[in-house]
Amino acid sequence: MEKSLLIAGFGGQGIMLIGKMLGFAASKAGMNATFYPSYGAEQRGGTANCTVIIADDEIGSPVSKKLDSLIAMNEPSFVRFVDRMKKGGVVIVNSSLVQSKVEDKDVQAFYVPANDLAQQLGSAQVANVVVLGAYIGATGVLDAAFAKQVVAEQLGKKPELLELNMKAFDAGMEAVKP
């Protein structure tokens, strides 16, 4: 098993953070993972993206032209990357900020209003954790317990933040349930 995921959005949406957290979670699950950030001539307010590969074997290329999954946190990211999906791939669309729809019938799309769900929980800041939960829920690439453990370690230093982030993760999982 080897699954590629590209996460893209505005700088400041916590794109890199959830990418790294997936790597930590894969490590806990005894799997292999790579995290490769886009870096260089990125601008504030522009798009940031990272590629995460999770596999049970050694990982070669840390980037992939064809994607198993995409998390699109804003409209420009959706437009830029949606054509790179493999057949049967999974796209998590942050429908709070993305108006476009997935047209390819061979791709599974999940429309998650991540910013709205996060706001309802008390902070728009946790929209990234909502989509993280949605990604785990939709793909089952990792046991949710490992991902939640990492969210707790990385974002749960204060009890109120721990609760908020756990709720955000669960809201994402819930949003992709059939």
């Binding site: 790597g23 894969a26 995290f35 490769y36 950030p37 870096y39």
Partner: peptide, 10 residues
């Protein structure tokens, strides 16, 4: 290079 330098791996 930047691939190995900037990527994270287990």
């Amino acid at each position: 290079d930047g691939v190995i330098g900037n990527m994270m791996e287990i």
